[in-house]
Simulated assay, not measured.
Amino acid sequence: MDPREELRVLLSRVALSDRTAFETLYDRTSAKLFGVVIRLLRDRHEAEDVIQEVYVKVWQRASSFSAQQASPMTWLIAIARNHAIDKLRVKKRPHEDIDDNHTLADAAPGPEKAAIASDEFDRMRTCLGELPEDRSLAVQGAYLDGQSYQELADRFAVPLNTMRTWLRRSLLKLRECLEA
């Protein structure tokens, strides 16, 4: 079954309060949604909380999903993204008058930290370049873009366990390269 069609079926079953379908939907989509949320919030603990709240919303609003208006993943990503943005808005402090603030600090990292971060980024890019291209793209898809193992296995036309092995071995090689 087409993954998009499978998600449509799962959402329609979730709308009927099917817990098994909800678990399957979570398994198929949580990694992708977590990737979206963590990119916005930049805090793992907050992202985990938001994902939990997102799936509560999905459970409650599954009946409002319309396949004619959006793909299932687009609908789920919109819920996750909007909830994460709402969380960011709540976190913002009220506006302070600049005249009342006598200690303005530049939030940007200093030259030393910027140089270290740049060096680490270059090392990571070099180490990724040492991996075979398909392994490098798979690692970037999983850990930077939030794609699930199944999505990557489909993308590279390999069995799911092969994709898991690729990622595990690639991470080990990255660690060796970065520690060298």
Rank of each mutant, 00 (worst) to 15 (best):
Q150Y: 15
V54W: 00
D97K: 08
G35H: 02
R164C: 08
G141N: 04
S118Q: 15
L88I: 01
I79W: 02
R89G: 07
Q52K: 09
L41C: 07
D122Q: 10
V139Q: 03
E48G: 03
A153P: 00
R125D: 05
A108Q: 04
D86C: 07
P111H: 14
K87E: 15
V58E: 03
E96A: 15
G110D: 05
I77F: 05
F121G: 13
Q147I: 10
S136D: 12
V37E: 02
G35T: 02
P94C: 12
T103M: 14
P159V: 06
L144H: 10
Q60W: 11
E48H: 07
L160F: 08
G35R: 00
D97L: 06
A70I: 04
H95I: 15
W59G: 01
G129Y: 04
E112S: 09
I98K: 15
F65I: 03
G35V: 01
P111Q: 15
K87F: 14
R44A: 09
K91P: 03
A157I: 07
E53H: 11
G141T: 03
L33R: 03
I79C: 06
D134F: 13
R93E: 08
P109G: 11
K91C: 02
P111F: 15
G110Q: 01
L128H: 07
A78G: 12
A105Q: 12
D122V: 10
P111D: 15
M124K: 09
L144F: 11
L88Y: 00
P159A: 08
A105W: 14
R81S: 09
R81P: 06
K87D: 11
Q140L: 13
P111A: 15
P94Q: 09
L33M: 00
L137Q: 10
P72I: 06
D49K: 02
F65W: 04
R135P: 12
E133Q: 12
P72H: 06
H83Q: 13
N161D: 12
L76V: 00
I116W: 05
V50L: 03
E53G: 07
R89S: 09
E48I: 09
E53I: 04
A80Q: 06
G141E: 04
G141S: 03
I79Q: 05
S71P: 07
L137R: 11
I85G: 14
F156C: 04
V36M: 02
L40R: 05
S148E: 01
D86L: 06
T126D: 09
L137A: 13
Y55N: 01
R123C: 03
I98P: 15
G129D: 01
V58Q: 02
L144I: 12
H45L: 13
M124A: 08
N161V: 08
D100G: 14
H45C: 10
D134M: 12
I79T: 04
H83I: 15
S148C: 04
Q140K: 15
F65V: 05
E120V: 14
P94V: 08
N161F: 09
D100T: 14
Q52C: 05
W59E: 08
V158K: 08
P111L: 13
P109A: 11
R81Q: 11
T74E: 06
T103A: 11
D134K: 13
S66R: 13
K91R: 06
Y149F: 09
Q147H: 10
H102C: 05
D86G: 03
V58D: 00
M124R: 13
A80P: 06
D119Y: 14
F34Q: 05
I38V: 12
H95V: 13
D97P: 05
G146P: 02
G35C: 00
E46Q: 03
